[in-house]
C-alpha cells in the first residue's frame, strides 16, 4: 500500500493541502484513525498529517491570572484534550473524562469534534459540551473557509477541515456521564450543560445518536430539572452497543440531565 502523506507546517499549508477535501484523510492525534489503519479497516490514498501544523493553541483573554474577562475563547483544532482539562465546565470536565492521561495527551479537539459516526460506539464526547456552549466552528472545504454554529457543522464534518472552535465562557456549566473506572474506548452516555450570561440554558448529549445532539425539549423545561429529565427522552432515539443497551440509556439520560441542571443551579 503506497500512501501519499502530506505533513503541513502551518495552518495555511494545511488548508492548501486539504483543498476541497476529496480523497484525503485527515490524521490529527490519530487515536481513532490509527486503530482503523492498524486493523486495515480502510486504505487511504492520501493523508494529511496535522501533527506539525502548529494548530494547537488556546486563546483566552484574561483580566487577571486564571480569570476570564468574558470575551471569546478560541481553541485550535489540534489542541490536545489534556490542555482543555483546565477550562471551566462543561468543556474542561468533559475533556478530563475522555479516556486516560496518555490518550488525552495525544487526542485532539478536532479529532473529537470530527470523529466519525459510530460503526460500533460513539467517540465524540466534546460535541455535547460544544453544543451546550453554542460554539462556532471555523473550517475549510469545497466552498472555502467559513464559520458556522456547531449544530450546522456536525452533519457535514467529514467534508470539512476544522481549523478552530470558539465560544463565550459560560456563566455556569456542568457535565455528567456514565461512570467507568477503566478507560474504555468510549463514554456510553454524557450530558453537558451551560448557562450563558443572559441566563439561557443549553444542553447537549453524546452517546445518543450518530453525533452530539441538542436537548431542545429538556432545555424548554430547564427550570424544573425533574421535568427536564423526562422531556429529554423526546429529544433522542437510543441504540444498543457493547457496553449498555438502548433501554439502559433511556433510564440513565433523565438522571444525567437532572444532575447537570441541579449542579448549574447550585453553581450559579
Amino acid at each position: 500500500m503506497s500512501v501519499d502523506v502530506v505533513i503541513p507546517e502551518s495552518e495555511s499549508e494545511a488548508v492548501e493541502a486539504y483543498g476541497d477535501g476529496s480523497d484525503i484523510t485527515v490524521i490529527a492525534g490519530g487515536t481513532i484513525v490509527m486503530q482503523l489503519l492498524n486493523y486495515q479497516r480502510f486504505e487511504p490514498s492520501k493523508v494529511l498529517l496535522l501533527a506539525h501544523a502548529g494548530m494547537s493553541y488556546i486563546n483566552m483573554p484574561v483580566k487577571e491570572q486564571g480569570q476570564n474577562d468574558g470575551s471569546t475563547v478560541t481553541v485550535g483544532a489540534t489542541t490536545p484534550l489534556a490542555d482543555l482539562t483546565v477550562l471551566a465546565s462543561p468543556l474542561g470536565a468533559c475533556a478530563a473524562n475522555v479516556a486516560d492521561d496518555e490518550i488525552r495527551g495525544q487526542a485532539t479537539l478536532g479529532g473529537n469534534l470530527c470523529s466519525p459516526a459510530p460503526p460500533e460506539h460513539p467517540s465524540g464526547d466534546l460535541q455535547g459540551a460544544l453544543i451546550a456552549l453554542d460554539a462556532m466552528v471555523r473550517s475549510t472545504g469545497a466552498d472555502g473557509e467559513k464559520s458556522e454554529q456547531i449544530e450546522d457543522f456536525l452533519p457535514h464534518r467529514s467534508d470539512r477541515l476544522a481549523l478552530d472552535v470558539s465560544f463565550e465562557p459560560p456563566a455556569s456549566g456542568a457535565f455528567a456521564a456514565f461512570r467507568r473506572p477503566h478507560a474504555h474506548h468510549y463514554t456510553p452516555l454524557a450530558v453537558s450543560g451551560a448557562t450563558s450570561a443572559d441566563g439561557t440554558v443549553r444542553l447537549g448529549v453524546t452517546g445518543a445518536g450518530d453525533f452530539g445532539i441538542r436537548l431542545n425539549a429538556a432545555e424548554a423545561a430547564a427550570d424544573d430539572p425533574e421535568a427536564a429529565g423526562e422531556a429529554s427522552l423526546t429529544d433522542v432515539t437510543m441504540a444498543d452497543d457493547a457496553i449498555i443497551s438502548g433501554w439502559y440509556r433511556e433510564q440513565l439520560l433523565p438522571t444525567l440531565v437532572k444532575r447537570v441542571l441541579n449542579e448549574m443551579k447550585d453553581g450559579s
Binding site: 502523506v5 486503530q35 492498524n38 496518555e102 495527551g105 495525544q106 474506548h185
Partner: peptide
C-alpha cells in the same frame, strides 16, 4: 491490542507517556 485499549505499548515520547500503537511515526 494495537487499538489503544491495553497500555502494553506505552513508551515515553519526549518524556510523556504515549500509546505507541496509535502514533504514526512521522508524527514524532
Amino acid at each position: 491490542c494495537h487499538a489503544g485499549g491495553c497500555g502494553a505499548c506505552t513508551v515515553m515520547v519526549d518524556g510523556k507517556p504515549r500509546r505507541s500503537c496509535l502514533i504514526p511515526v512521522a508524527a514524532v
